[in-house]
Design a protein around this nucleic acid. Structure first.
Length: 589
RNA sequence: GGAGCCGUAGUUAAGCUGGUUAUAACGCCGGCCUGUCACGCCGGAGGCCGAGGGUUCGAGUCCCUUCGGCUCCGCCA
């Protein structure tokens, strides 16, 4: 760069800088070559500045500037000048001024990019991922990473001020039997054995509490080898937090402070705290799901009792019959209802019954003919149908009916534009079940994780009726996304043994897999608990993005590949030999 | 493991019930242009219609297989 130093970013100059000599660096965004005057919008991470090459100002420099093309990298020295009367650009922060170029250096040329580096042109995602380094030049994406940095720094500041220590934990660790599928790393030194990448630093942070470090946090990568979604990547980042001598209120209060700080430092927005709280049972009852989007108000209503043992067999025998009234929903066409029927079938529902209320109050429905007069009266008493409303039914297995209707609720929120897209609605969901039954494995598994404490009065339930024991666990839900979750942990070996027993993990296996935890709990483990936030999801919501790919610099595709590096890839047979690994023949169908 | 949507110049898309030489815009290349800001005007080049197979006189279009991207179910303590 010949000793040149940048004096300003491309969003910094305004009328107050007029007359100053400046040096700018950046990429050619747009070139407007008039033959005489040449205008170039110079782009960097922060913004655009118009620079002008004028033949009258410097004929030689102007002549050379004809050759400039998109994405060439320039350093320019020039004078900040006012734009002529009526020539300002209100769309640009720097729109009042332009920089008249005295001298420039072409720092690098560029091939024509495979897609335009502009926010208004969305190239296909496969192309954008292959050339991720170009996609990241787009301001819409770059600003997500500027925000992400602000959020992460805000979190660090907040936690440091409260006396939390940022401690790093191992990435090469041990596979654990519960939870998600592990990513494995073969050991060269001990052939035939494998490390696992951590699904979270859960056990290490508990160890740090036993160590007396008192308050820990880490912004840390976690790895889970499960299938991807728009809000799930195989490697993702958590703000992982643990504190000693803590109960639910203390942790939730700290977490609320953290989230409100992050909102303030990124969007300048004050989130009202404390956040509303709701039990898991209430969430399922009113919303059908454990992470309700409470930006809008539709609620589910149970009507099982009305139809129990009645004349309409489908409802009479159902474990659960639930309805959702959508005011004004009678405008839905048959075709739309058919689409919503297909939608609920995704969740295993057998169908979608409905009642439309016509303007004269008459019920139009494929099923009311099966209802007795008494059932109609009781239904009307419970849901208060009015002209123009539609009432959707789900009947059958409770979990399917809840899930189907709960997800249909979100669809209705979108269809009738009930959701304020600019709103943020945080919500604590508490009192989760400690265990849930796994039909495949024919045993109970931990709903949160096996180190979660049962609620004080629930130890008996855990032994007698494990499915109904409640946990000291809590999730933070934001706009229908689970953005955080945590619990008060088990801190005595006796309770941990009860838990392992409930999970069908015998003493030998517990010792083999979690021996160090059992040991640690014997040496004066303090009561402790914590929480972990999905940083990617939180940033996604803060950015208004639809996918966490938009807030991860180098994300994976749905098949967990990286289109830029082409990972995963094959390795040399010599590498495998060193590790003592031989690949099996590919199994043909 | 399963379901759905998508794949056509560099890019974004159009291409009907199968029928001459596959369109358009932007980009690119060349020329002109001193107040543009997605500059404008004139001209030009650019295609393995994701890949493979089949049906047909004839396939971008229909069928099968396959690869890739996305969304979702299962899965994700």
């Amino acid at each position: 760069m010949g000793g040149w130093r940048r004096t300003h970013h491309n969003n910094e100059l305004n009328a107050s800088n007029i007359g100053e000599q400046v040096t700018l660096m950046g990429w050619v965004q747009f070139r407007r070559d008039h033959g005489g005057l040449i205008f170039i919008d110079l782009r960097d991470r922060e913004g655009l500045t118009q620079v002008v090459f004028s033949p009258e100002h410097n004929a030689d420099v102007h002549e050379r500037a004809h050759a400039l093309r998109s994405e060439y990298v320039l350093a320019i020295k020039g004078t900040v000048g006012p734009r002529p009367e009526g020539m300002t650009n209100a769309n640009l922060v720097t729109g009042e001024i332009e920089v008249v170029v005295d001298e420039y250096k072409l720092l690098n040329t560029s091939d024509t990019p495979p897609f335009p580096i502009e926010d208004r042109v969305e190239a296909g995602e496969n192309l954008r991922l292959k050339y991720r380094f170009l996609d990241l030049r787009r301001p819409a994406l770059a600003k997500n990473f500027i925000l992400r940095n602000k959020a992460a720094q805000s979190a660090r500041r907040y936690l440091d001020n409260l006396g939390f220590l940022e401690v790093e934990t191992p990435v090469l660790t041990k596979s654990t039997p519960e939870g998600a599928r592990d990513f494995l790393v073969p050991s060269r030194v001990t052939q035939g054995q494998f490390y696992a990448l951590p699904q979270s630093p859960q056990l290490f942070k508990q160890m740090l509490m036993v160590s007396g470090l008192d308050k820990y946090f880490q912004i840390v990568k976690c790895f889970r080898d499960e299938d991807l979604r728009a809000d799930r990547q195989p490697e993702f980042t958590q703000i992982d937090i643990e504190m000693s001598f803590a109960d639910e209120d203390l942790i939730q209060g700290m977490a609320e402070g953290l989230v409100t700080s992050m909102f303030k430092d990124t969007l300048g927005m004050e989130l009202p705290a404390p956040f509303p709280r709701m039990t898991y049972a209430e969430a399922i009852r009113d919303y059908g799901v454990d992470k309700p989007d409470v930006r809008f108000d539709l609620k589910l209503v149970e009507v099982t009792d009305i139809f129990q043992g009645g004349g309409f067999k489908v409802f009479a025998a159902a474990e659960l019959v639930k309805v959702m009234k959508v005011p004004g929903g009678a405008v839905l066409s048959r075709k739309e209802i058919d689409e919503f029927t297909k939608f609920v079938e995704i969740y295993g529902s057998k169908g979608l019954a409905w009642i439309k209320v016509k303007e004269d109050g008459e019920w139009q429905s494929p099923i009311v003919k099966f209802f007795s007069d008494d059932e109609k009266v009781r239904l009307q008493e419970r849901v208060q149908l009015e002209p123009g409303d539609i009432l959707f039914f789900q009947a059958g297995q409770a979990d399917i009916a809840n899930t189907a209707l709960g997800n249909l609720r979100v669809k209705m929120g979108e269809r009738f534009e009930l959701i304020d897209e600019s709103a943020f609605a945080p919500l604590w969901v508490t009192d989760f079940p400690l265990l849930e039954y796994d039909a495949d494995e024919k045993r109970y598994v931990a709903r949160h994780h096996p180190f979660t404490s049962a609620q004080p009065d629930q130890m008996k339930t855990l032994a007698s009726d494990p499915g109904n024991a409640l946990a000291r666990a809590y999730d933070l839900v934001l706009n229908g996304y689970e953005v955080g979750g945590g619990s008060i942990r088990i801190h005595t070996p006796e309770q941990q043994e009860v838990m392992f027993k409930a999970l069908g993990i015998d003493e030998e296996e517990a010792r083999e897999k979690f021996g160090f935890l059992m040991d640690a709990l014997k040496f004066g483990a303090p009561p402790h608990g914590g929480i972990a936030f999905g940083l990617d999801r939180l940033i996604m919501i803060l950015c208004g993005a639809k996918s966490i790919r938009d807030v991860i610099a180098f994300p994976k595709t749905q098949k967990a590949t990286c289109l830029m590096t082409e990972a995963p890839g094959e390795v040399a047979s010599s590498q495998l030999r060193e590790l003592g690994i031989r690949l099996r023949e590919k199994v043909q169908e």
